[in-house]
Amino acid sequence: MTQISEAEVRDLAYHLWIEAGQPDGSDLDFWLAAEQRLMGTAVVADSPAPEKAPAAKSKATKAASSESKPKAAARGRAKAK
């Protein structure tokens, strides 16, 4: 396992802080994030797993499925004249 120096952590933490817009009161968070990144154990907490999009049906599949369904009868009353 390689040793990381305090200077490396400090420099990376500073750059992460700059990129985040220099928020007040988060110095420990940036320090720990820098340590994790340098050790190769960084965990991304803010990015959720991508959701799978439903597979698109081809035109042939849509046509075949619509042909197999019976047509619904028209509902409602006839308009009186």
Results as ranks from 00 to 15, higher is better:
A53S: 13
P54G: 10
S58Y: 01
M39W: 11
R37G: 04
L12N: 01
L38A: 09
S5T: 12
V43F: 09
L32R: 15
D27F: 09
M39S: 08
K69S: 10
E35T: 00
R37V: 00
V9Y: 00
G21S: 03
E19F: 05
E35K: 05
G25P: 02
E6A: 11
H15S: 12
L28S: 08
K59R: 14
P23A: 05
D24N: 13
E6V: 13
E8D: 10
E67D: 15
A20P: 07
T41R: 15
A45H: 09
G40T: 06
E51K: 06
K69R: 10
A53L: 09
F30C: 10
S68A: 07
E51M: 05
S26T: 15
A34M: 03
M39C: 11
A53M: 14
A56D: 05
V9A: 01
P50A: 05
P54V: 10
E67K: 14
S58L: 02
E35W: 04
E19T: 10
F30Q: 05
S5Q: 02
S47N: 08
A60Y: 14
S68N: 11
E51D: 12
T41W: 11
A7W: 09
S58Q: 06
K69M: 13
A64P: 05
A53Y: 00
G40N: 08
Q22H: 02
